[in-house]
Amino acid sequence: MIINILMIIFGIVMLIISYYLYKHTNTPFIKIKPEYLTQYKLTTRFISILFLIAGIISLLTIVFNNKTFSIFALLFGSICAAYYAIFISNKFHI
């Protein structure tokens, strides 16, 4: 029961982050040099789609009630977040 509630929270957070990143593709939330702006837009849009997929998968795990599917959704969302954080920190020297 508690796992289902946490998966719902995780799915909603993933969907909110996906929406935020997709809406802010053209307006970066950090200072970016103009030569990196195109790469930022492409990566942010790609990651927002991956977060959307992770959110949908995590919400589908409630319906199927499969622990393996839940673990996959959590790992997929975490890997996407880690990739985006590493990309931002390497490209923009934060």
Rank of each mutant, 00 (worst) to 15 (best):
I2H: 11
I3A: 15
I3T: 14
I3Y: 13
I5Q: 15
L6M: 15
M7T: 14
I8P: 05
I8K: 11
I9V: 15
G11Q: 08
I12H: 10
V13W: 08
I16S: 13
I17D: 01
I17T: 02
S18P: 05
Y19E: 04
Y19A: 04
Y20F: 13
K23C: 07
K23L: 03
H24M: 05
H24R: 06
H24Q: 07
T25K: 03
T25S: 01
T25Q: 03
T25C: 00
T25Y: 01
N26R: 08
N26G: 11
T27F: 11
T27A: 13
P28F: 07
F29M: 14
F29R: 14
I30S: 05
I30Y: 05
K31G: 00
I32V: 04
K33L: 10
P34F: 05
P34E: 14
E35G: 07
E35V: 09
L37Q: 10
L37P: 12
T38E: 15
Q39S: 14
Y40A: 02
Y40S: 01
Y40L: 01
K41T: 02
K41H: 02
K41M: 05
L42S: 08
L42C: 09
T43P: 00
T43Q: 02
T44V: 00
F46T: 09
I47W: 00
I47G: 01
I49N: 00
L50M: 03
L50E: 00
F51E: 02
F51C: 01
F51Y: 06
L52A: 07
L52W: 04
I53F: 01
I53W: 00
I56P: 13
I57G: 10
I57Y: 08
I57W: 14
L60Q: 09
L60D: 10
L60I: 11
T61F: 13
T61G: 15
T61R: 14
I62N: 12
I62D: 06
I62F: 12
V63T: 08
V63H: 08
N65W: 14
N65T: 14
N65P: 11
N66D: 15
T68S: 15
S70F: 12
I71L: 11
I71H: 08
F72H: 11
A73T: 04
L74K: 01
G77K: 03
I79T: 10
I79M: 11
A81I: 04
A82D: 04
A82T: 05
Y83D: 13
Y83N: 12
I86W: 01
I86P: 00
F87W: 02
I88L: 15
N90P: 07
K91M: 01
